[in-house]
Design a protein around this nucleic acid. Structure first.
Length: 225
DNA sequence: AACCAGGACGTGA
DNA sequence: TCACGTCATGGT
């Protein structure tokens, strides 16, 4: 079986096991509950919220990010203008639950300034990467989930799972792993969105740091067996 | 009670 | 380039 067939097979297996994840999660406008929308076109508010979440979730559990986003929503700060106008103390206390709050406050401010400068235009990957605090994974998450571009997001989970499966090297460069997936998958944003979400789910349920191989749906593909 | 979570940046070699 | 150190809260 070639890489292309393997990836599709792995994707279908995870989808059958975990179901459609419908990423990216956004806060509902009506309530403060977190609702999971399908990867349909987003309005501007949701797009911006997705970008904030992409920054806040850097090396951080999503449950903590959710608290920070809900705090920002409560004080009406889910827009770039409001974030820029907030007093520093307000911003810091709002995002405190998600950790690294000093760095992340600076990142949110830098990104808000950048976002306004776009005046509605979709940024290039290179432009995003030029913003302080936005690295490759964060940029790709924004492009995929906020802008709907067919880009494969590579994170620590992707590395862990697919190196254990024997399809990539553990320390392979980010760009090379991204190209491996993009070369072997349909150029389809919905597919990239769902695939990445399923990778996160699989990493949490089975392919944890200390792997829980009991009942792992991907064991038939895994070189550990 | 250590360990980990959907990284990025700065530094010294 | 590469290997580390730093940043920080909350759940298990």
């Amino acid at each position: 079986m070639g890489d292309k067939e393997k990836l599709v097979h792995i994707y279908r297996t995870m989808l059958a096991e975990y179901g459609c994840q419908g990423w990216w999660p956004v806060i509902s406008n009506k309530t403060l509950l977190c609702e999971y929308h399908a990867g349909a076109p987003r309005n501007k508010e949701e797009q911006f919220e997705i970008c904030l979440g992409a920054i806040l979730t850097q090396n951080t559990a999503w449950s903590n990010v959710q608290k920070a986003l809900i705090n920002l929503k409560r004080i009406g700060a889910l827009s770039p203008e409001k974030i820029l106008s907030l007093k520093k103390e307000k911003l810091l206390s709002a995002i405190r639950p998600c950790g690294y709050f000093n760095q992340k406050a600076k990142k949110l401010l830098e990104f808000s300034r950048f976002y306004i400068s776009l005046s509605g235009r979709t940024p290039s990957r290179q432009e995003l990467l030029s913003v302080w605090g936005i690295g490759k994974e964060t940029a790709d998450s924004m492009l995929l989930y906020a802008c709907g571009m067919p880009i494969f997001v590579v994170d620590a989970y992707t590395r862990r799972i697919f190196s254990r499966l024997g399809l990539v090297k553990e320390k392979e460069e980010y760009e090379n792993i991204r190209k491996f997936f993009e070369k072997n998958l349909r150029k389809d944003a919905k597919l990239c969105q769902e695939f990445h979400a399923l990778i996160v789910e699989h990493a949490k349920r089975h392919c944890t740091k200390k792997p829980k191989c009991q009942g792992c749906p991907l064991s038939k593909f895994c070189k550990r067996n």
